[in-house]
């Protein structure tokens, strides 16, 4: 697979380490009243769809960026790639 890195262009997937569901970005607020339940979901319940999936990939043998890669798990088509820090920063603003 080739992953089109937003800063570096297409890179071989073997330069990356995958961590799965990009939902890991959305760490719950530990002060929330239902924090225990939300952390349980955050840590243990992951989507694993056959189809379009947002995933976290780490450019471990590259620039050490975490990326959010939107990938079709059936065809391996890569629909979108963003810097995870951008995705996370945007989410912070919208909160």
């Amino acid at each position: 697979m080739l992953i089109p890195h937003p800063l570096l262009g297409p890179r071989d997937a073997r330069e990356f380490t995958v961590m799965g569901d990009a939902g890991m970005i959305d760490r719950p607020d530990p002060a929330a009243p239902d924090a225990a339940d939300r952390f349980y979901e955050y840590v243990y319940l992951r989507d694993n769809p056959a189809g379009v999936h947002r995933e976290l990939w780490f450019h471990e043998y590259g620039d050490r960026s975490w990326l959010v890669v939107t990938r079709n798990t059936l065809t391996h088509e890569i629909v979108a790639v963003e810097l995870a820090s951008d995705v996370s920063a945007k989410r912070e603003k919208s909160r």
Binding site: M24, W66, A84
Partner: peptide, 8 residues
Amino acid sequence: FARQCLWP
């Protein structure tokens, strides 16, 4: 991961 994804 924590630096980029959790607390940018």
